[in-house]
Design a protein around this nucleic acid. Sequence first.
DNA 1: CCAAAAGTGTTACAGGTACACCCATGG
DNA 2: CCATGGGTGTACCTGTAACACTTTTGG
Lengths: 250, 250
Amino acid sequence: MWMDDRSAQAAMPEEAWTIPEVAVAVDLAILTVRSGALKVVLVERGIEPFAGMPALPGGFLAHEAEDVEAAAFRELTEETGLSPESLHLEQLRTYGAPDRDPRRRVITVCYLAFVPGLPSPTAGGDAADANWVPVDAVLRKRSRLAFDHKKILADAVERARSKLEYTTLAAAFCPPEFTVSDLRQVYEIVWGEELDPRNFHRKVTSVAGFLVPTGGRTSRGGRPAALFRRGPAEVLHPAILRTPSRTGRR
Amino acid sequence: MWMDDRSAQAAMPEEAWTIPEVAVAVDLAILTVRSGALKVVLVERGIEPFAGMPALPGGFLAHEAEDVEAAAFRELTEETGLSPESLHLEQLRTYGAPDRDPRRRVITVCYLAFVPGLPSPTAGGDAADANWVPVDAVLRKRSRLAFDHKKILADAVERARSKLEYTTLAAAFCPPEFTVSDLRQVYEIVWGEELDPRNFHRKVTSVAGFLVPTGGRTSRGGRPAALFRRGPAEVLHPAILRTPSRTGRR
DNA sequence: CCAAAAGTGTTACAGGTACACCCATGG
DNA sequence: CCATGGGTGTACCTGTAACACTTTTGG
C-alpha cells in the first residue's frame, strides 16, 4: 500500500505494462491593454472539431523532445512576432479532462502572457491586429470558444487581475516609457474599476524599485507628465488592493 | 503566419503528421503539520532511475481516459488512506523539461494536498507514519530527491506558505475541532516565525466565517481554550501577512 | 483666461503591533 | 497560591480614502 505506484508498475518489463501516452498541447492566453480594453489573441480554427470557431493560439509539442516552456515561447513569438525576452510569460494551469478534445486524449499546458499595448509594436500588421479581441466580449456574451478555452481564458483573466494587486506586472502592459496615468489606465481597464489618480500616483511612486523616472515628460492635453521605466521590483509592498476585495469584509 | 499551429498540422491526414505522444504522470506534495514540523509524504523508489532514493508519491495515468484530477485524487487516497472529500487538493504546476526522466519523455502534473495533522487520522499505521518527513530536512540538507522532485517540493512549500496569508487553508491542517492555539501553531510552523498569541487570536476570530465556535473547551495546562470548527470562508480579509513580506519595504 | 491633466497637502479612519492586564484552570 | 496558557483593552503607528488645492500645459 505504501509503495510507489510508478515504481510498482515499472518494476515489470516496461513493455508488459503499457503506460498510456497522450498528446500534449500548449495553449496561450496572450493579453494586452489596447484601445481602452483588455484584449486577448484569438485564432480561427480551420478544421473540425470546432472548425471556424475562435480559439486560443496553441499547438502540440513540435517533437517528442521539445521542452514545454520552449513550446510556449515558440507559440508566443509565432503569434505576436515579438521577441520573447521582453515579454512576461508564466504557466497558468494544465487542463486534462479526458473529453476536452473529441479526437483523442489531449492535455494542454496553458500559459499566460502579458504584452505591451498602447504603441502597437514591431509586428503591427493589419491582419495581426484583427486577432486582438476584447475579453469582455468573449467572456460575457454567449460567444463560445473552441474546446474548454473559454474556461481557460476566464482563469487567465482572473490570474491577471489578481497579479496586478501584489506584483509590478501592470508595467508589462506598458511601453518602455510610460506615465503614471498610463499605468493607472492599465489597472482601471483590467480591474474594470476607477482609481483615484492622486492616491494612485502617490502609491506607485512610493514603492521602491517599481518606477524609475527617465527625466522625460509627455504632454497630452494638460500639465506634462513625468515618464518612467520599469524598475527592478517584482513584488508590491504594500499591495494595491481591489476595492471588491475589502467589501467582503464583515 | 496567423494560422493556428494545431489546425495547420491537423489539416493534413492525421496519420501523415505524427503528433508526439508523451507519458503523463501525476505527482503529489502531501503536506501536514505534525510533531511541531511541516512534513511531506515521501516514498522510496524501487527501481532505476533513482532506485532507493526518496521521491514524491505519484504515478502515471492509470489508463488513457483517466482524468488528471481524478488520478491525483486516486494517488492521494492510496497514499493517505483518507477520504478525499475532507482534504484540500489543488494543482500546483506542470513540470515538462525533456530530460527530467532519463527513461522516456515524461511530463508530470503536480498537485499540492493539505491533510490534517495533530491527531493521526484513520490510516495511522506504523509504516504509514514513517513516510512523513520534515520538509526542512529535505529541502535544506544535501538530501536529494528523485527526478526534479526537490524543486517541486520547494515550489509546493512556497505555495503553501503564501496561501496561508490570504486564505483560510491553515485550518485544513487542523483536526475537525481545534483551538486558536492549534491554528496559530500551524502558521508558526509553516512560516517558521513566531506570532503574537494575543493579536493572532483577535485577528482570526474577527474574520467572518473563518472560525465557528462549537461551545466546547479544552484544557491543556492553563485556562481552557474555546474549540472551533472551520467556517465557510475561504479567503481572508484582511490577509495575515508574514513579517518578511513587509521588511522589503523601502 | 479657461479647461484639463499632473501632482502635493491634509484630515479622518482602518487595521496592525506591542504590551499591560485580567481570567481560568492544574498542580 | 503559583505557573501556565487563554483572552481583552489600549496606545501608538502605518497606510488608505477622500478631497481641497496648486502646477503646468494647450487652446
